[in-house]
Design a protein around this nucleic acid. Sequence first.
RNA 1: GGAGGCGUCGCCUAGUCCGGUCUAUGGCGCCGCACUGCUAAUGCGGUUUGGGUCUCAAGCCCAUCGGGAGUUCAAAUCUCCCCGCCUCCGCCA
Length: 418
Amino acid sequence: MIDLRLLRDDPERVRGSQRARVDDPAAVDRLLEADEARRSAVTRADNLRAEQKSASLAVKAASKQDRPAVLETAKALAAQVKAAEADSAAADAALRAAHLAVPNVVLDGVPAGGEQDFVVLEQVGAVPAYDFAVKDHLDIGTALGAIDTERGAKVSGSRFAFLTGWGALLELALVNLAMGAAVEAGFTPVIAPALVRPEAMEGTGFLGAHADEVYKLANDDLYLVGTSEVPLAAFHSGEVLTDLPLRYAGFSSCFRREAGSHGKDTRGIIRVHQFDKVELFSLVAPQDAAAEHQRLLGFEKAFLSLLELPFRVIDVAAGDLGSSAARKFDCEAWLPSQDRWLELTSTSNCTDYQARRLGIRSRGEHGLAPVATLNGTACATFRTIAVLLEVHQRADGSVHVPEVLRPYLAGRKELLPQ
RNA sequence: GGAGGCGUCGCCUAGUCCGGUCUAUGGCGCCGCACUGCUAAUGCGGUUUGGGUCUCAAGCCCAUCGGGAGUUCAAAUCUCCCCGCCUCCGCCA
């Protein structure tokens, strides 16, 4: 949720953000109106309640003869208060709806426009050239006995896969490497629940536009998380934090329905319903958010470099940000089989938007105020495995193992087809 | 899954049976001031959070006793639902 004070003081800034997002600026004016309406409703109800309180005390003080008349007055006021409170509650609900409809205000420098309007900030490593016909990760992985999508489909359905043999070890290797690097960088390791209550899902904004993406366990009123950003963000919900910054590296399985992506990335393990991920999550003072964002991006770049993967960094356009993010950088690695860049990591600066919704505050100069939250991918396993296999493939079907992963893979320098 | 107990403004705690005097008691901690070579001790005052009003501040008003709903002129207190914690039993990696 955006800061209503900012909205009142500078609505044009919020409208500008909406235009940059190719979103409706009128949502801003609807929010202004709802804010106004709520305040007048609240004031009215408050005043009536004050009157009723004194009327109620008068009942107690009244003499026997006066009592019936005074009681009548008090009863009449009570009815009015009840009506005014209902109005106030309705205005409150309307405000909340209008409030949720306005996404975070984008930061200066974020490219305006939609998905195609990103700006490439840098490229690290050259696009690899192969003097043989490259295979895609599924062919390579199947030959290595590392990926089994056929049985994944048999057992669980499409977009599920078994990782077997080196594939399974590779997943654990990546998780361990990512966790180790995160700890070294000052993040506290966390194993997070993958099932969360509606409040956690709601509070992190995943039940809005992305509600279709989320698995729900109707019998238990729980949701399967699509990222450990959800439990990590909700971890401190409703708390007043004293020791900022707080940095976490959360591991969990991630579940995504992939509704609306039919026909997209159907082959292999680039887009699956279930994968594992190590996610970075920082809570910092608002003024430190931009620097922390660079820190998260720096981690991601360093990690991809450790894996010896060529990648580029893009500044995601406003319209492709998602409601909580004020700025987002994606690292896209080269996917040889498709001759294109593929998002491997993504880091978002949510400023105080998410924290306001979750009630995560700290004591600042002007009293309690929401902190800034940021998240970033340390390593999403399946997709990273896909890219690793493709980029590091050789003509003979073997796959080069980056040095940092070898300690986790029995020292192997390469993986050989079975 | 069964039975019972508990949840009060940072922490501990009084109040809940029997509704109004609760504008929530006291202690600890913390902040300010006074006294004092310094510290400590002592004394006095302050110390939940959110909202409204207000140019700002002060002030004033409203809400807030785990959450929600209800009864009532009036709810920390009575009723119902939910959440969490603890104890015992059962089951279990």
